[in-house]
Write a protein that binds this DNA or RNA. Sequence first.
DNA 1: CTTTGTGAAATTATTCACAGCA
DNA 2: TGCTGTGAATAATTTCACAAAG
Lengths: 217, 217
Amino acid sequence: MPDRSSIPRPAAKRLSLYLREAGICVRIGRQTVSSRQLGEALGVSDAQVRKDLALLGQFGQSGVGYDASALYQQLRQALGTDRNWNTLLVGAGNIGRALLGHAAFEAEGFKITAVFDSATSLVGTTIIGHRIRPMSELGSCVKELRVRIGIMAVPRDAAQVVADQLVRAGVSGLLNFASRRVELPDTVRILSVDFTGSLERLAFEIHAAEGGLAESA
Amino acid sequence: MPDRSSIPRPAAKRLSLYLREAGICVRIGRQTVSSRQLGEALGVSDAQVRKDLALLGQFGQSGVGYDASALYQQLRQALGTDRNWNTLLVGAGNIGRALLGHAAFEAEGFKITAVFDSATSLVGTTIIGHRIRPMSELGSCVKELRVRIGIMAVPRDAAQVVADQLVRAGVSGLLNFASRRVELPDTVRILSVDFTGSLERLAFEIHAAEGGLAESA
DNA sequence: CTTTGTGAAATTATTCACAGCA
DNA sequence: TGCTGTGAATAATTTCACAAAG
């Protein structure tokens, strides 16, 4: 067994890509898939794919490739998505509603079990089948429903306060849609999705690609 | 003038974080900010901050730090957000609507100038002040409004087709919300935001931290 | 004093290239 | 033949540490 105690961060990021691709292979009935094929589908070198998958153990077959469904199962297990994750959503605004309507979550094992909002005008109403709860119920909800991930779709100025509440309620991780860094105890993981930051990075790449040549004159 | 095209990818990712922080400094009236302060606010080492900012030129002051508004301007210029970027949105579903209601885009120089959808039931209707246009208008719209970025908020199975249409229409970059890799000519940049993938990565980190399968820093 | 900018060193990540297997 | 798994080589990135500057 290889040393499984430490998976490099960049490799960890690619794991969910491999899972997606393995899922496609399984769905279309493909028996095996090679590191080259996976790599081409995802824009990664074949050597990189092999290195990454070897981190999870040896289950490829020389001359053949990886068994698609074994790969799929192995990745699900490694990522922890072989069983269900209960999540809760804080913030029933634009982004929150989009997430509630995002069917892909449940298909991949993530269930939004409860929705919270601090706006009293929203509390008690039902949005896309979810009753909006008051923040005061956060703690009991996390315990009763065994929620492990809190999804924060709140304004940036509320992010730290909500994060603190979620941590106190006992979640293990946060998915943060507010473009603000929040301080957390290092027992709690966070991953941020920043729309504006993404656009800025994209703009930078375009800008640099176009400006880089023109400016050397 | 520094050569923007030679900025390392990880550094480029941090640039938008620095911009956010510099913006906060300017807004609260702070005159100067040091690499240590920036680093602490963003979870990056001070040496890293200095290396990154030095890529844009030398504008720090020994013993003092960086002039907040000069830093802000410099970053905006480097990222290309000192000028307006016209974008268009394809897909007026859940995610598309959330993006239309996301005020932060315009505040940072990104304007959604037009919205498209392939559903004939939506075309012609107005959503959050935007008339939904048929896909057939894509080409003329890009030209007339000088759109450079296409935002794809479409189902995964439509992603490649829509990407092809956007490329043909002449955009320079794509912001993709579908969890599927799309093939593009390498003159066109793409950046993908994958909700499910993000959740999977978060779940992996939690899972790994708890299960002994850790991720190295 | 404090803080920048930057070579040099250390660390981390990727690619190469090939032995070994089916 | 086609392919994996993996050490070795390479490349990229981060950290160190300090001279120079205010």
